[in-house]
Each structure stands twice: as C-alpha cells, then as structure tokens.
Design a protein around this nucleic acid. Structure first.
Lengths: 157, 157
DNA sequence: TTCCTCCTCATACTTTAGGGTGATTTTGAA
DNA sequence: TTCAAAATCACCCTAAAGTATGAGGAGGAA
C-alpha cells in the first residue's frame, strides 16, 4: 500500500503532465466541434501545443534541475597558528639537552636567572652554567640574542 | 552590418527553434498526404508534438539557464602573513614615543645597550633612560619581559 | 612667550648577567 | 659494571643591566 502512494508522489510531475495533456486535447477537440473554426486550423493547433509544451518543458527543467554547486575557497588567516612544532632536528643538531631547553623557554618568558632557579628548584649557579652552555651552543653572547635565535630556529614558541 | 550578425548569433536558438517547428509541421503534413494513416491520428500527432517540444524545452532550459550556484566557503588556514602590522592603538595607549619604540626594536634583536647607543649615535646613559621609561610604560622589570610583552602586543615583529 | 613633552646626558649606586674554573652526583647506554 | 654525558653546585671576578635623581636643549601647542 505505501508503495502505491510512494509511486504517486514520486511520479507526481509525470502524472500531472499526462493529465494536463489529456485536458488540452479535450479542449482542442471541444473547440473544433463547437465552433468549426477556420479551415486549416491544424497548423495553429500544432504551433500552440508546441509553444505550450516547450514552456512546460522549460518550467520542468528549471524546477527539477539539480543546482550546480561551485566551491569557492576562502582564505582565512589565523591570528597565529598556535600549533607550535618544535624543530627537533635543529635541537639535536645543536646538541641542546632537555634541561637547557627548559631554561631557554623560561628565559624567553622574561624570567630572571634567580626566578628560573627558584622555579626549577636548583641554585642560581646551576642556571648560570646552563646559560653558558646554551650561549655557547647557540653561538650568542646574551640572553636576548639566545631568545631571538631560538625563536628563529623554532626551538621555542 | 555587424548588428545583423550579432542578431543572428544572439537569437540562434530562437531561429533554430522556429526552423525546427516549420520542418516538423511539413513532415507531418507530408505524412498525412502520403499515407493517410489511421483515422483520428490527430491525437497521435498532438502527443508526439507535445513530447518533442517538451523535450526541446527541457533541452533549451538546461542549455540556456544560468547555473544555480550554491556557494560553499571552504576555510583554508594559512600561515600567519609575515607582513607585520604595528598595533598603533596600543602604542598610543601606552604613550610610547618613536625613539622608545626604536630602542625597543633594537633591544628585541638582541643588541646590548652599548650597541644600541652606538647605532643611534647617543650615549649609553640615554639608552638606559629610554629603557627605564619603556619598562615603566610596559609595566615590566627586565628587557626580556619588555620584548615578550611588546611582541604579544604587536608593537614589534 | 610660556608650558609641556621628548630627547638627551650625567653621576652614583645596586642588581643581574655572564665568564672561567673546578668539582660532585645522576643517569642512561654500552 | 663502566663510561660519558648531563645535571648539579661553588667561588671569584667582570661586564652589563637597571634604578634614582637631576638637568639642559629642541620643538610644538596654547
């Protein structure tokens, strides 16, 4: 039962089309019988039908045609790709240890040696030693240069 | 002259359509005269014409209709454009002068106070004064913090 | 002109950073 | 277990950075 209903719904356009065609034929025949219009009216009928059904075809096509989709790629610049990826190659290449990198990060956050020492639970002298090693490996002379270089090499964000 | 050509080109479809209609009528008439087919063949003619011109209408509509477009914006995340734009609002807000910004930039490049002084043809003490003002305005205590804050506020690249 | 800001410089002092050296402990790999 | 690198710490010294205060000159706005 639902199959029949489904069939009706799915072929609604076709059915309507057939009904419309029948009605039109009936109308034409009725006109012919009633008024016996001009002789050779055949061509007029055909023309009218052609125009009507062409219009119907156009309407059907426009109604049923699937819209063509166009993909437009829109570039969106993110504020800053927060996804920092550490340059491990350079890290290994420069032979910088975990602890040294840790100190380097805190240094770049603006912490003083004493603050870094407190944070890592070690002495100030230890941090100074780490710094000296870092500067040597990064081939710089000051912490500000170390930060600049490390950022450039993606060792720190 | 080009107007006539232009007219032909522009109404190509319409003209073809008319020619096709005429040819079809001629064909039907010829068939009628030649074979005098089944009586009441009128309905068959009309049906055939209807089907043909519906198809023609559909073809025309699909051919000529502008495509219905659905815009789908696809976000493409790209690297942050390397074009640095200075945050002038914040600069004015913090009341940082041109010279101070200049010192700040050189500071972020890892230069020492002495190097900055030499580069700007002023004395070391002058740079120290600028620094003190900068730290006050940026509400920081060290140059490394100043650099970190200034970068975060887009005062320097 | 007067006033204000910016830029400049100096002096004196404190704090922090950095260099050099040496040493001990931890730890991971051979 | 042994060895080397890593991590830890100390001491001493110098260099650089930062603080505080005062002051003079240049230039723009009222």
């Amino acid at each position: 039962m639902p199959n029949a209903v489904n069939f009706l719904v799915k072929n609604k356009s076709t059915i309507l089309y057939g009904v419309f065609l029948a009605a039109l034929l009936f109308l034409l025949k009725w006109l012919e019988l009633r008024f016996i219009i001009i002789n050779h009216a055949f061509e007029i009928y055909v023309g009218a039908i052609a125009v009507l059904f062409t219009a119907l075809g156009i309407w059907l096509a426009l109604k049923l045609s699937k819209p063509k989709t166009i993909l437009i790629e829109k570039e969106i610049f993110t504020e800053k790709p927060s996804t920092f990826v550490l340059n491990e190659k350079e890290l290994n290449n420069l032979n910088i240890s975990k602890r040294e990198l840790e100190v380097l990060q805190l240094m770049s956050e603006g912490l003083s040696n004493q603050e870094i020492a407190t944070k890592l639970f070690v002495s100030l002298n230890t941090i100074k030693t780490h710094n000296a090693r870092l500067f040597e490996k990064l081939e710089v002379k000051r912490r500000t240069q170390a930060i600049e270089t490390a950022k450039r090499l993606s060792l720190i964000p």
